[in-house]
Amino acid sequence: VLKGSDMHVHAQEYGIRYLEQPPYEVLYTNWISYCEIRRLKRIEEMVELYYNSGQFTHTLPVLEKAYPGPFAMYEALADYYQEQGYFTNSPARAYRYQILLEFAAMKDPANREIYRELLTYDMYLRENLKSRPAFAAEITEEEKQDIRRFYQTEEHERHYLSAYDQYDWKQLSRMTHLELFRYPEPHYVLFDYQERNPLNYEAKVQVIGYPIL
């Protein structure tokens, strides 16, 4: 890595054009054009938003399989952001899930519902949401009844939430989240936000049988 002073010394030799104020960002060289550098910057931003954020840990490994490798996926995602104008109008953090679903469905439409579930899982793993994500599947009346029955039973029997013995079933349902997933087979997942992983802040998860008895 060239420092500012080194860059100045070798600038003519390497055909380097760069910003003359810190952080002395390179604009182009004899070997790489300005457009190519900007393209790499856009790919870098996708890696930062989607991989380094740690918010899509279950979705990205599956989506990568639709591409020759991770770089190809982030490159295509950067192109998608560019085409949709998202670099100009930066989307809110929560909306990035919706964008990734649209992008995944465009590349791999046969697995759209799987990506929807993966993104739903990734979001609830980190967020105890007050309102349901727009991209998540709708909850049926039967599921609502199952979820209500689970919490009502848990209020009295405490099979899964023993640390919440001072709370009633309505409070339990607000402090945790129960979601039905259908792949690879139907099952409920209980997200416990009071017992988070201290390293990545992910909720504790417990798999609940389907149907709830």
Rank of each mutant, 00 (worst) to 15 (best):
R116E: 07
I37P: 00
A76H: 08
K170V: 00
V205M: 10
V26E: 05
H10P: 01
Y210W: 08
L27W: 04
F71A: 09
L77M: 13
E179S: 03
K204H: 09
Y14R: 13
H58V: 00
S53M: 02
Y28T: 05
G15W: 04
Y34C: 10
E13T: 10
S53K: 01
F150A: 04
I37F: 09
A72Q: 12
L60M: 08
D146E: 07
K3Q: 14
Y210N: 13
E143V: 02
P186F: 03
V205N: 14
S90H: 10
E44D: 13
P211S: 14
Q98R: 15
Y193W: 10
P70E: 14
A104T: 07
Y67T: 04
M106R: 15
P22A: 15
Q152E: 10
E179N: 05
I212G: 07
E202N: 14
L100F: 04
R38I: 02
G15D: 05
I114F: 02
E13L: 09
E143H: 05
P70V: 06
E154K: 03
D165G: 02
Q98A: 15
Y18K: 10
Q55N: 08
A137S: 14
E13G: 03
E64G: 02
R126A: 12
F181M: 05
Y121D: 10
D146T: 02
Y67F: 13
L118R: 08
V205P: 00
I208P: 00
D192E: 13
I99K: 06
D79F: 08
R42T: 03
E138M: 10
